[in-house]
Design a protein around this nucleic acid. Structure first.
Length: 293
DNA sequence: GGTAGACCTGGACGC
DNA sequence: GCGTCCAGGTCTACC
């Protein structure tokens, strides 16, 4: 079956897909042919479905591998709309960026939306898996988590959804350390799964909560394993762009762009984008860097 | 509030 | 094949 969803213009699906590395993390799978992707989604009922997303007139079309009940259709629609930020609007930022050559490309490419997972739980875990490690290790740890704890697609057991909080909460730290190879992150992931599964932490509520950025940041940083970088990354996913996710890459880019390759710190990165105010994270994210080494 | 050292993995490198 | 070093953010203890 197919579901059609409309997007706030301008919208260009490949720009969302390529917005960051999430597309390389299972259960995302890029479809280079169409510029879209497939994803394994676990619905509230526990059912796993494969969805294939392609650009369509005014938005996207979502092909689902099997028939859904009306309630399941509604859940798929709202989750896909969230993943792609279909209702997001960037007119104010585009107007501000109009005269900045380093951001000249963003309007024609409809940049701004950042690909999200179906749940914030999945995005928090993936963000923790990006910290203090190489990207190749992030891909591996995430793949291990999915393969070891995710629920399979009934028609093809090799296709697996991201693990639910309940499933992860049912495992133990030693398994996550030695078998899933999460290392010191294991207790962080386990604690998060316990808190979400027991409803002690309503992560999904943050998607729609009307909370000031600073307060939201405080909540995110109360999660073990989430520091300033991870919180800024998650805030961007939640549509708050007041903070820059400063990592070693950011330091290298800013050093080359404005400091003649001299070492810089977090303060210099912040200063470089201060003039973008509440949009500074997005300006940083979409900047056309001159570094090509 | 700022800082040093520990945390853990896997890749690169030297032998 | 083995040992050592290094990169990558966050946490905790300490000042």
């Amino acid at each position: 079956m197919k579901i059609a969803l409309s997007a706030q213009p301008p919208f260009y699906l490949p720009s969302v897909v390529r917005s960051h590395g999430w597309i390389q993390l299972s259960p995302f799978l890029a479809d280079d042919h169409t510029g879209g992707f497939t994803y394994l989604i676990q619905l509230d009922t526990g059912r796993v479905a494969e969805i294939r997303i392609q650009e369509a007139q005014g938005g996207v079309s979502v092909a689902v591998d099997s028939p859904l009940t009306p309630k399941e259709q509604s859940e798929v629609s709202s989750k896909v709309a969230w993943m792609l930020g279909l209702d997001q609007e960037f007119g104010t930022f585009y107007a501000l960026a109009h005269d900045e050559p380093k951001l000249a490309h963003i309007v024609s490419e409809a940049r701004g939306r950042i690909l999200r997972s179906a749940t914030l739980f999945e995005d928090v875990i993936k963000t923790i898996l990006t910290t203090n490690t190489l990207w190749s290790a992030t891909i591996r740890m995430n793949r291990n988590l999915v393969e070891q704890f995710g629920a399979s697609l009934p028609a093809d057991p090799a296709r697996i959804a991201f693990p639910s909080p309940e499933r992860l909460a049912a495992t133990d730290e030693e398994t996550l350390r030695s078998s899933t190879r999460l290392g010191y992150r294991a207790p962080y992931i386990l604690e998060l799964a316990h808190r979400v599964a027991s409803s002690d932490l309503d992560l999904e509520g943050y998607k729609t909560a009307d909370i000031p950025t600073l307060e939201l940041r405080k909540h995110l940083m109360a999660i073990k394993g989430v520091g300033p970088y991870a919180a800024a990354n998650l805030l961007m996913l939640l549509g708050h762009y007041d903070f820059i996710p400063v990592d070693s890459w950011a330091l290298k880019m800013v050093s080359h762009e404005w400091y003649n390759d001299e070492p810089v710190g977090k303060a210099q990165v912040e200063a470089a984008f201060e003039r973008w105010g509440q949009w500074k994270g997005l300006a940083y994210w979409l900047w056309s860097w001159s570094y090509n080494g």
